[in-house]
Amino acid sequence: MGGIGAPEKLIVKGKRLDGRAFDELRPIQIKAGVVKNADGSAIIVQGETKIIAAVYGPREVFPKHFQEADRAHLNCVYDMAAFSTPERARPGPSRRSVEISKVIRDALAPAVFLEKYPKTAIDVYIEVTNANAGTRVAAICAASVALADAGIEMRDLVTAVASGKADGQLLLDLFELEDNYGEADMPLAIMPQTGEITLLQMDGEVSQDEAAKLIEMSMQACQKIYELQKKALREKYLAEGAATGEASE
């Protein structure tokens, strides 16, 4: 892009350009129940990346031929708002957003008891309102909180983070410059209780040993994010729950 394009170095005096340690996450905030119309929803703010996820369902399937006799049809739509990127993003699906929607669905599906909701649709809508790297993994974190907030039966939440390599260093949770000018980027999602991996992608170049280290670093970071996901859900329901108990006795 020229101008303020590639920085000369991504690591200066043992620190990243945004001042973080190599294995440090950006500040993360998660809140459940932010879209009133939806059955479940959540917002995640991770550094400058801001994403809202909303879940509708289980509801009637539309169009009808997507209906599955023995399980719910899980539908995910990842979309970037036109104003979410430096240059205006043309609204509507792109090849990139369609692929991301699919890998997000494949990352969430193992955690959802789809078989409990035959012939229905569970729709997960994800809107990136401000993008600064790591949107697919942040989207997964928000979407799994939204699914839980919708009261959908799940084996576990799904937690995700990206790690990668820049200036020869293995780094956690890349921000834009590291993502654009680094050597490798590896998004990963797990079910935090079992550690099973539900999403894994990579582009760039790393050794076998480095790949193993990145997976380990991401999995550890996921446990931290998992705590924030649980906190977001508890914050919404804790006080409410106590009152329900009283009334239902």
Partner: peptide, 17 residues
């Protein structure tokens, strides 16, 4: 000026053009 009635915002909105 452009408006996107994204399905996130209402059960009445659908994906598509």
């Amino acid at each position: 000026i452009n408006a996107e009635l994204i399905p996130l915002a209402s059960p009445d909105f659908e994906t598509g053009p």
